[in-house]
Amino acid sequence: MTPFVLFLGVAVFQSTLLYQLSIGGVKPDLFLLLLFFLSLSLEADLASFLGLLFGLSQDALSGGPLGLKVFSLSLMGFLTAHFSEKLYTTAILPRFMLLALIAVLSGTTTLLLLRFFLDLDPLLPTFLRIVLPEALLTTVVGLLVLVFLKMRGALEVKP
């Protein structure tokens, strides 16, 4: 029940109020953030499937082609779940670094897919204008969530 409510909240917040917090027209990717935190405690195949659902929703709420975020989010869900198995500590730093990596990878995957399928804006300027700021914002918001979870003692090592 809680993940569904969180998902609904993220979907609505991402497409209504979040633009007011955007910097230079770029906002953090809350879908990716929620997927990241859920995938930390999931099996890789389940995390991929969750990425599929999140991606479909994000694509439906966007003007882009259906399947664009499905691809990147299911891949990121898989990678998060896979790498989280290697985290034998509840420290914030490794999770923060993993989130930063996932955020940059997610943006880069989307950029490459867009370039391949739609041949839109040039690679490097778009990477610097959208991918990096988005990854930075997502990671900063993620860090706040990590600190909050750590304070509540909710960061666990995967069994």
Binding site: E43, A44, D45, S48, F49, G51, L52, G55, P65, L66, G67, L68, V70, F71, S74, L75, F78, H82, L113, F117, L118
Partner: peptide, 22 residues
């Protein structure tokens, strides 16, 4: 290799979706 198989299926599915739409 269930996990990789699930991921590959999803990636293939989304790739095909994108291809059809283009």
């Amino acid at each position: 290799h269930r996990q990789v198989a699930v991921l590959s299926t999803i990636l293939l599915f989304s790739f095909l979706l994108l291809t059809f739409q283009v």
